[in-house]
Amino acid sequence: MAAPRAFSMQRVAFLVQHTLRVEFRQGHALIGLLLFALSSVYAAFQSVGDDAGAESWNALIWIVLIFTAFNAMARPHPDDRPENRQYLTHVVRPLEWMLARTIYHWALMTVLAALVFAAFSLFLGTDHLVGGRGWWLFAGLELAGWALASCLTLLAAIAALAGAGFGLTAVMGLPLIVPIVLVATRFGNDLLSGLSGEETVENLLFLGALAGGITAFGLVLFPYLWRD
């Protein structure tokens, strides 16, 4: 049986649902992610206290977001087992699989970024987020989360194909996400050092462009990975 010829959005939607269902079936997976994010924030809180300066506040929230993203994207997924993949190559097109995985990771990062932001506001305070800057920073976190998700989805797929786990994704991924981190931290720094959101909006647009560009790149390249 060969892979279906035409691209179908229905199969993408089904794959997203399927991935989510498998995650829930595993039980510990999603809870583990939430706990990891919360305890990282708490560790950050313990290290700087509740009157953190703007610079530490900014540095820590991005570090926590990066590690949360790595934890969420780089862990082995049940669908990545060779026998599952073998089956999937016959019933879905690679583009559909990649799109579904990216959409799923985007959704996951949306939740995790919101959680990190909420926990940060709770523990480390919102003293630096006056005048509507909280919303801007939240938008930045979400966009950075999507960009990280796009990048790490492809890398995790590569690592899964290589039969290697978390370590390989980290070795390949940490340098590759530097552009995202640079733009994101600069955006946060601008905001927390007193610029308004409108004044540093180009960084936000840059993050969006990175997310879109990396996603497009991943969607173009992934079919080559899956070819047998």
Partner: peptide
């Protein structure tokens, strides 16, 4: 670092056909 990662990735895969394909994709990205 990225190109060092490329070499690590190659070292991680034993099957030469798979290694060539995977690392080519990563190389384009890099």
């Amino acid at each position: 670092l990225v190109y060092a990662g490329y070499l690590v990735l190659r070292a991680a895969v034993d099957d030469p056909v798979l290694r060539a394909r995977i690392s080519a994709v990563f190389n384009l990205f890099a």
